[in-house]
Amino acid sequence: MDWLGLIFGPDGWGGLLLNGAIVTILLALTTIPFGFGFGLALAVLKLSKSGIVRGLCEGYTTFFRGIPDLLSLFIVYFGLQALIDRLSSALQLTTHIELGPFVAGVIALSVVVAAYSSEVWVAALKSVPRGQQEAGQALGLDRWKTFALVTWPQLIRVALPGLGNIWMVLLKDTSLVSTLALVDLLRAASEASKNTTRPILFYSAAAAIYLIFSIVSGLVQTRLEKRANRGFA
């Protein structure tokens, strides 16, 4: 039963695994508002009247949906930093702006999630008839209130299943950050298995934790969908 000691003992790796699990969850949760928000903005722009704007947004989506997420992560992690450096030297800034691994991870994941979610948002935006907006305005609501009270509740109902799938993808994609410099769940399992030469034990433990996250997410998603569907028998 030495495996119990390896995980829970005083010199066990359970603490590191737990920390890694927290980093994984934080990474995914922090990415959500940026990724989904940016995705929604992209979707609105994709429905704009300007061909150039539409083309640019479609190009963005095509690019990040077409390359491996691992590659997107590398490009954003190293490329964005280089871009910032070049920009700040062009602007003759004296302070050096630096992205930490967590921030860089969140940005990289947000970039990917935005591309994926913009498709879901486009479909959802199209599903709300124009007449609804006009009706809102006819009632004397301003644009923002029309969006918040009329469009959004109908929008989110259509978007939720798709966004739920993207959340699942994101949860698993956080593991790619382990190849950069952040000790997430998978990296923690990796460190533990290399130090103890017990890969089966620690990778299974990591898999079990991911599985719990996925299953809980599935339950929450069902809840949310039920809630969003109130009044739509």
């Binding site: 699942m168 890969p199 990778y203």
Partner: peptide, 23 residues
């Protein structure tokens, strides 16, 4: 299908590759 869809592919790959080495 829950296992393979609920855990990261990288984790599965490590499990198979380094796990096979262990056994």
């Amino acid at each position: 299908s829950t296992f393979f869809r609920g855990t990261p592919l990288l984790c599965q790959l490590y499990l198979v590759y380094y796990g096979a080495g262990e056994i």
